[in-house]
């Protein structure tokens, strides 16, 4: 086994003479190296999937992006992202990968520069068999959707329509988590969020969410901000009164435990975190009767937007975060106590 491994290693060293190991794909390099800054926009880096960020730097075309990646920039980009062991081809591959994510929104300085630059990277050895599939893609098919005004769409609308039909939810049809919003699509600035009209000046006057979320604690759902923790740690100080900045909310510290069916941990409802934001009258008596045992709550009702679902799943964290509510471990059943 070991011998075979070394044989493979030697063989690959012979094949790819320069860095001994097989060249990494642009995606691999991106996720290992570039994503540190380019996923979140750390230190002002253009964010993956954010066309506006890239457009602001697109004046020099693709060649300029390669140059910045390889040699670094005065703004803070280290040469080759600080990983000098990467080959030029790998760095360019990563640039291509990031540019591909913003392709339809990208207006490069010189359109014709893109093609030769691409061709230059092509001949580099790529271990994946992707290139073989490149040819049959543009099959002549009627384009049902009107082509968007981007240059790529104009050049191959038929192929795109075919691809769109094959993968309606985007990306590889068999990929993991294909229904989830990728990191680059979260917290988009207003002109790109799909509900603001980018042709209006007002849209551009609005604050992008990430500008505000930078210092706030993270969570795994919703805005990806842990609002309760942000409030606890005084990262935000929302007024409890419209006029009076010093007004303090009437906080009630009372946990209500609701026993639930099955093996799911019991729900602990904390009044404290709710009353920091809300008045009693926001929930009582319209949504919850303030009488013990008089409220019938089910996950179905919550998913239908009733009870907890009035806020949770719309503005407060969604039901995907099971354990934030179902947090009290049950006593083990008698079988364990009896033992043997």
């Amino acid at each position: 086994m070991k011998a075979r491994y070394f044989a493979t290693l030697l063989a690959s060293a012979a094949l790819f003479s320069v860095p001994a190991l097989a060249q990494q794909s642009g995606k691999d390099v991106y996720s290992k190296v570039c994503a540190t800054c380019h996923a979140t926009g750390l230190a002002g880096a253009p964010r993956y999937g954010n066309a506006a960020d890239w457009n602001a730097r697109a004046g020099g075309g693709v060649g300029r992006f390669y140059q910045s990646a390889l040699q670094g920039t005065a703004k803070g980009m280290p040469a080759k992202g600080g990983h000098m062991t990467l080959s030029d081809g790998e760095v360019k591959g990563a640039v291509d990968y990031m540019l591909a994510a913003v392709k339809d929104g990208l207006k490069l300085g010189k359109a014709e520069e893109a093609a030769p630059a691409k061709a230059e990277t092509k001949p580099e050895p790529k271990p994946e068999p992707k290139k073989a599939e490149a040819k049959p893609a543009p099959t002549p098919a009627p384009a049902p959707a009107p082509a968007q005004q981007s240059p790529v769409a104009a050049s191959a609308p038929a192929a795109i329509a075919a691809a769109a039909a094959a993968a309606p939810s985007g990306g590889d049809v068999n990929a993991f988590n294909r229904m989830l919003k990728p990191a680059g699509k979260r917290n988009l600035p207003p002109p790109e969020d799909g509900i603001h009209d980018p042709t209006v000046d007002g849209t551009h006057a609005l604050q992008p969410p990430l500008a505000a979320f930078g210092t706030l604690p993270k969570s795994f759902a919703g805005n990806r901000v842990n609002w309760v923790e942000a409030l606890d740690k005084n990262k935000i100080s929302p007024r409890a009164d419209r006029q009076d900045p010093n007004a303090v909310p009437v906080v009630m510290d009372l946990n209500v435990v609701r026993e639930v069916k099955g093996s799911m941990p019991d729900v602990v409802y904390p009044h404290k975190q709710h009353t920091e934001w809300l008045d009693c009258s926001n929930c009582h008596p319209a949504i919850f009767n303030p009488q013990k045992g008089s409220n019938v709550i089910s996950m179905a009702a919550i998913l239908l937007g009733e009870k907890c679902g009035v806020c949770h799943g719309k503005v407060a964290f969604p039901v995907s975060e099971c354990r934030l509510c179902h947090s009290k471990k049950k006593e083990m059943p008698a079988a364990t106590a009896q033992g043997k």
């Binding site: 392709k103 339809d104 893609a137 959707a145 790529v152 192929a159 691809a163 769109a164 993968a167």
Partner: peptide
């Protein structure tokens, strides 16, 4: 192309 299709779908 697939990436672009994804963007279109979005």
């Amino acid at each position: 192309l697939i990436l672009f299709a994804a963007l279109l779908a979005v």
